[in-house]
């Protein structure tokens, strides 16, 4: 564990709490992509299968994994049941097949061994890197977002961005690198580039998140 990894994980945790806060306080899931949230559940469940297969990494690791699976399912419940009426499916029209299909193919092609759990792990890495697409698509379509929603997306982007120095650090200190996670992580962080630009230049200076026309 190094400081980049720790703060990356904390940013990831923060993103979930910000999302819950947004839904609970505004009593609405307006502006959020249900599809992105479903993809995160798929990501967590397929990646954290090792929880149920007896692989033990650490107490920290297990607690975090359980939290991410539990909280992401709870968010689906909030969006689908409790605040269903505030969700606008006509905005959330990104075709997730275009994300799941290629991720599955990449998972089958690039993995550390051709076993069920390793393929699913690899699939989850590729899928996570693009899971934010439906959410960014909504931002693009509406051209603006509530500030708290932008904080949520920023926390998610910061989480993956911090994993990059973590990998560099681990490469130097442990001599090990995880090429699948690194490539997908770089892609994922890159996807946030446009968003970050508007977020840092506008939202953090108290302005609304509005995309330039």
């Amino acid at each position: 564990m190094n400081i980049f990894r720790l703060f990356g994980d904390l940013a990831h945790l923060a993103s979930i709490f910000i999302l819950l806060q947004k839904i609970q306080v505004s009593r609405s899931c307006r502006g959020l992509s249900f599809k992105t949230q479903v993809l995160y559940v798929v990501v967590f469940v397929s990646r954290y299968l090792d929880l149920f297969l007896g692989t033990w990494v650490s107490f920290y690791n297990t607690v975090m994994k359980l939290f991410f699976i539990g909280s992401s399912c709870y968010i689906l419940y909030l969006m689908r049941v409790q605040f269903r009426s505030t969700y606008d499916p006509t905005l959330d029209t990104f075709r997730v097949e275009y994300l799941v299909g290629p991720s599955l193919v990449l998972g089958l092609l690039f993995n550390y061994s051709f076993t069920f759990t390793e393929i699913l792990w690899s699939f989850s890495i590729f899928l996570e890197s693009v899971a934010i697409f439906p959410q960014l698509f909504i931002l693009q379509r509406t051209g603006e977002a509530e500030t708290i929603t932008t904080h949520y997306i920023a926390a998610l982007g910061i989480y993956r961005a911090l994993y990059i120095p973590n990998w560099i650090y681990r490469y130097w200190t442990e001599g090990s690198a995880d090429p699948i996670a690194i490539v997908a992580g770089l892609v994922q962080t890159g996807l946030y580039a446009d968003f970050f630009y508007v977020y840092f230049t506008k939202v953090l200076q108290g302005k609304r998140f509005e995309l330039p026309a």
Partner: peptide, 10 residues
Amino acid sequence: DEKEGKHDEL
């Protein structure tokens, strides 16, 4: 593969 089962990141 020694990588297998060593995914300690989240």
